[in-house]
């Protein structure tokens, strides 16, 4: 799968500040089609509906800790469906504990990024997923 500047990206984070920071960074590194969701509970139907509408999201960046549906549950929902089993998923977390990484890898995460991070580090993580 190749990186395209116009690929359809979904940012999932309950904190508006972090969504804005990530959107700024993605824009800085050249991405153009960015949508936001404020919880996994909102993101999951958006992902399904975009697929049904024929304009599926091609990359998900999701926070781990969210109040209604956390990033891990969202990831498990995505991976439990055949049509989304290969959808690239980057998990964002404030906690760098090894246990978290293992849990996310077992659930099928594509890559992992720990806050704080720069636009350059985000770009490198994305490149690793798509190459």
């Amino acid at each position: 799968m190749a990186i395209r500047a116009n690929m359809k990206i979904l940012i999932v984070d309950d904190m508006a500040t972090m969504r804005k920071i990530i959107k700024n960074m993605l824009t800085q590194v050249g991405f153009k089609d960015i949508t936001e969701a404020d919880d996994g509970a909102r993101a999951w139907p958006m992902i399904q509906q975009s697929k049904e509408a024929g304009v599926p999201f091609e990359f998900i960046l999701s926070d781990w800790n969210m109040p209604e549906m956390d990033g891990l549950t969202l990831l498990k929902n995505i991976r439990s469906s055949d049509q989304f089993k290969d959808l690239p998923f980057l998990m964002i977390t404030a906690e760098a504990e090894q246990g978290n990484v293992v849990i996310a890898v077992k659930a099928g995460v594509s890559n992992f990024i720990v806050k704080p991070f720069s636009a350059q580090v985000l770009k490198e993580k994305i490149e690793k997923i798509f190459t």
Binding site: M15, N65, T93, A94, E95, A96, E97, V114, K115, P116
Partner: peptide, 8 residues
């Protein structure tokens, strides 16, 4: 959040 997460 980030300070606490990192300090952990």
């Amino acid at each position: 959040n980030m300070v606490m997460g990192n300090a952990k």
